[in-house]
Design a protein around this nucleic acid. Sequence first.
DNA 1: CTAGTCAAGGTCAGGGATGGTCAGAGGAGG
DNA 2: CCTCCTCTGACCATCCCTGACCTTGACTAG
Lengths: 154, 154
Amino acid sequence: MGTLADHIEAYIKQMLRENQGRAIELSRAQLADVFACVPSQINYVLATRFSLERGYIVESRRGGGGYIRIGRVQVEDVRQDTIELLNQIGQRLSERQMNNVLARLIDHHVLNARQAGIIRGIVQQECANIGEGKDVLRASLVRAMLLLILEQGV
Amino acid sequence: MGTLADHIEAYIKQMLRENQGRAIELSRAQLADVFACVPSQINYVLATRFSLERGYIVESRRGGGGYIRIGRVQVEDVRQDTIELLNQIGQRLSERQMNNVLARLIDHHVLNARQAGIIRGIVQQECANIGEGKDVLRASLVRAMLLLILEQGV
DNA sequence: CTAGTCAAGGTCAGGGATGGTCAGAGGAGG
DNA sequence: CCTCCTCTGACCATCCCTGACCTTGACTAG
């Protein structure tokens, strides 16, 4: 974890943990100050690490007294949520989307980092040998492997 | 005398040993520099010597702060012949062939009947949604799920 | 009420830093 | 020769980070 974006991500997640997972509120300018970077860097981190796909909800308001609020999508039944997530995977799944799915499942403790790594490795290897239709194959593979884990890992 | 690829392979394995088998992280450009070769040579070594079948897992990230991470997955000797079997699955796998593979793995106690059933179900579902290339997709799916079970125990 | 001002946050295009891919040249062994 | 493995280089894809410019909201002077 070396980049600035990684550090900011970790910092925000730490804040969330310390707040027991309830939504936190912060100032973009102040946070940028803490990390000595331009404010728009914060937007980059929010867009890439705290997207809805990854299970986060980000709200904000401009103007005087503006703020950024970050919360997690509330999930009652993790297993059910995962199944829905898998159903929402369409016919195609980009590498980026896959990473978002895996990141979210790690967050929800459906997977650990090791399992996610193995899945990524398998997908990469299988996708390497075909030209067209990587996204289609990736969608099938990810669905299949996650279903397998769900149905028999419990 | 070994080839350049052999030397790079040995070098990386040495690094892994020195790190007690924990995953190592390296820079493609730097490593290429050490061996005075083009960066893509590293990819060649990774693809040919550090594949999943050989028990390695390779992850990478591009862009600033990019890296290549190499870790090991433990594969029990008992299961090594299963890996062989998976490697023999070619680009296509008919339903009959799949059933033969699964039956054989049940015989060898690599799978139980329930697991085989789950795999069949998932494959059937995934293959139902596409027209052409069912056999190709089936080959990928079966390889992927069996690798997942082997390397991770699910 | 209106316009102006200040204080947030948002967007977007671009540049630099990595790693990935692929076709083909080059070699070593049968 | 023929084939398989190595190795290279040109071109590609992705990620991170910045800075100029834009939008929104609250407050306040007239």
